[in-house]
Write a protein that binds this DNA or RNA. Structure first.
Lengths: 204, 204
DNA sequence: GAATATAATAAACACTGTTTAGTAAATGCA
DNA sequence: TGCATTTACTAAACAGTGTTTATTATATTC
């Protein structure tokens, strides 16, 4: 019965085709403008076909969402080698911000958008997200252990750090940094200087 | 020619009627579900009539957006009496967070949503927003003058502070704090503890 | 080869924001 | 007062959206 396996493979290939097209369109023109019909056009199938492979639009973007978390995770883990946890924390922070500025659409989908949240709240609660957040927790608990930062409850510290970098990126991504009335390059410099100041304040 | 004045008044009344209805619907069911047709239904006029008073949906929500900034501004200014700028800063922070948690839809419209941003970028650049941000700048420059906080460039410091509180509120409002896997009350407590920790780190 | 299961789609449904063409009432002027 | 003009309003349409249903053509099973 190799036919069933082939069918399964073909089904997965079709799902991949849809995800690839959706990702490409999404990164090119954003979530709202990526309609089911535009994906269907792109892969040269009818819109209804897409619903044979995905429950709804959210399910498609939940897969992209998961992929984005994998990419961020790879970026952050590249600092695993840094022995000093405080230095590692700084590197993670810079990389997080860099990821957000360079992949605003991914960042939006992961941490700002409301759309595919129904999926996220179910499933293995934040699977991918827990991973990156877990990495922050481990790094911070090392910092606390070695008294590199002010003693405080681990989760409170983690939320403080995450909120700060998320605030930086999300205000930038959603164009609220225009209040600075600076050129884009100057604005980005303020962001990174702001991270340096934050880290200086954090240090014991 | 009192007729012209009456007509002008009636026009303004109609605009107010639309805004009131839109605000009420928006706060009850959010931006996306507040359609032009639902507003029209509510005020018992045809959808096309609304377009005689507002250019498009964005223009309606830009007015609500402005009103929301007025409300936030009033909340923040209530701490004008606090003489010590560092204490005042803490009070402003708490009030900012409280406003966000208690008015998530207003907060969303003001600092997260993409929708009525076209309007904001034009007009008297951030008029209302500059006001609240300006208040933060004054308070922080007093803190710097009196050496209550670590010396640093004013705008860098302001962005650090704003990003942090915005991060807190926006992660909460867009339901990313569920990563803590805590009850809502406990999560809110973490937020406020996180503010306390941030302020402690900020202090010289 | 006939019966069944699978894959794909055209067309429709119920929405959305917005525009256009046409109607009825209020106003300005003689 | 009577007529022309401006104003206020709307029904209907347009071009989209996500999603569902009924139907057709193909592939698989027996």
């Amino acid at each position: 019965m190799a036919i069933k396996e082939r069918k399964e493979r073909e089904k997965q290939e079709m799902r991949n085709l849809i995800i690839e097209s959706a990702t490409q369109l999404f990164l090119k023109q954003g979530y709202d403008k990526t309609s089911i019909r535009s994906i269907a056009d792109d892969i040269e199938y009818s819109p209804a076909t897409i619903y044979l492979y995905f429950k709804d639009k959210d399910e498609i973007f939940y897969v992209i969402h998961e992929n984005a978390f994998d990419i961020l995770d790879k970026h952050l883990r590249q600092h695993d080698g840094i022995a000093d946890p405080f230095e590692r924390l700084g590197a993670i922070g810079r990389t997080y911000i860099k990821f957000g500025l360079e992949n605003p659409d991914y960042y939006d989908l992961m941490f700002i958008m409301r759309a595919p949240m129904e999926q996220i709240k179910n499933e293995e609660k934040w699977k991918a997200g827990e991973c990156a957040f877990g990495y922050l927790l481990t790094t911070l608990s090392e910092c606390l252990e070695q008294k590199k930062i002010r003693p405080a409850e681990l989760h409170v510290t983690a939320i403080m750090v995450w909120s700060f970098v998320h605030g930086l990126v999300s205000l930038y991504v959603r164009e609220r940094m225009c209040i600075l009335m600076m050129e884009d390059d100057a604005t980005r410099e303020v962001l990174y200087s702001s991270l340096d100041l934050f880290m200086a304040n954090l240090k014991t």
